[in-house]
Amino acid sequence: MIVMTDQLLGQWNYYLVIILMMIGFYGVIARGNMVKKIVGLNIFQTSVFMLYISMGKVAEGSAPILTGDPTTVYSNPLPHVLILTAIVVGVSTTAVGYALIIRIQESFGTIEDDDIIAQLDDEEETA
C-alpha cells in the first residue's frame, strides 16, 4: 500500500504533465475556433516543457551555477537549456499561427473551421 501511494504521489509531476497534455490535445482536436486551437497547442507544448523541466530537477539540488564547493548537488541544466530552445520554437509557432489566423480572418471573415469549409465548398460549387 505504501509502495503504491509512494508510486502514485512520488510521480505527481508526470500526472500533471499527462493531464495538461490531454487538455491541450483535446483543445487542438475538438475546437473549431482557430485561436482556441492555438491555445490548445500551447497547453500541449507546455506539458512537454514541464516534463523536461521536472526531469532535470535533482532532489536537494541547487541551481546549476558553479560555487566551487565540490559537495554541492546541482540540478541537471541540460533539459532546461533544451526546453529554452523548445520554448522559443513554441513562441515562433504561435506567432506564425496567429499571423495565419489574422490573414484567414481578413480573407474569410471568420476563424471557425466549419465556416471556412462551408465557404470553400460554396466556392467549389459555383466554380
Binding site: 496567429y98 489574422i102 480572418q105 481578413e106 471573415g109 471568420t110 476563424i111 471557425e112 465556416d115 462551408a118
Partner: peptide, 20 residues
Amino acid sequence: FAGRTAHLRLLSKSDAHERK
C-alpha cells in the same frame, strides 16, 4: 499584431453565422 487591430474584428461564432 497591434498594427492589425483596425482590420481585425474577433468574431464570436454566432456573429460569423449571421454574416454567413
